[in-house]
């Protein structure tokens, strides 16, 4: 995973609430055995409109997306995060996310920034004309107009993003603890192993 620290660039002033993962990447794009090339399908329905934001000269390839409440709701498809990443997006800024989406985003080096609606409204305004700067280390979003918004992030997620950490390698360091848990489970609740069908 590519580490993420500072991101500066144009921010797509998208802003809609309850954007579900079917909108981010329609189901027919899920018929693949690869993680690659999904940017083509990102927001496919919206991008069928020639005047859409994503393909406009100002915002094409922009690294930041500003969205509304409950972004990424619906399906668990990680394809949504893959599609955003392939589109060039490294940061999403929204008032809230679905739990599954925000986890998937972090695992793919995409930072889900949570800010209150008033901050989102201001950033939507700035994004019309100017770039936005996101700094994960200091947990701030700033603009060329002296706006400075501080965001919270779970320390474990922050570390994973800053270091581009592979969670499986990290968990494998706990191999002995997992083994001990399994032994205890077999002793205390042996019926938990699926019966021979």
């Amino acid at each position: 995973m590519t580490p993420l620290d500072k991101v500066e660039g144009r921010a797509i002033p998208f802003g809609l609430k309850n954007i579900d993962t079917d909108v981010i990447i329609p189901a027919h794009w899920l018929k693949t055995t690869s993680r690659e090339g999904m940017g083509k399908g990102a927001f496919e329905t919206l991008r069928a409109d020639p005047g859409n934001l994503f393909d406009s000269p100002e915002y094409k390839g922009a690294p930041i997306l500003i969205a509304g409440d409950n972004f990424g709701c619906g399906s668990s498809r990680e394809h949504a995060a893959w599609a955003l990443g392939d589109l060039g997006i490294r940061v999403v800024i929204a008032p809230s996310y679905s739990d599954i989406f925000s986890g998937n985003a972090v695992k793919n080096g995409i930072l889900p920034v949570v800010l209150p609606q008033a901050a989102i409204d201001r950033l939507m305004e700035v994004a019309q004309t100017d770039p936005v700067h996101v700094d994960l280390d200091t947990q701030t979003v700033t603009t060329p107009f002296q706006d400075r918004f501080i965001f919270e992030i779970d320390p474990f997620r922050k570390m994973c993003l800053l270091e581009g950490l592979d969670e499986i390698s990290l968990t494998e360091k706990s191999d002995a603890a997992i083994g001990a848990y399994e032994a205890k489970l077999d002793a205390e609740r042996p019926w938990l192993r699926p019966a021979a069908a």
Binding site: I168, L170, E172, I178
Partner: peptide, 20 residues
């Protein structure tokens, strides 16, 4: 609960998940 594909791989490899 539902998980993404990276978590599917994590569970296959370790039978655990890192959660809050």
């Amino acid at each position: 609960f539902g998980i993404g594909t990276s978590e599917v791989e994590h569970v296959l490899a370790t039978q655990t998940l890192l959660l809050q």
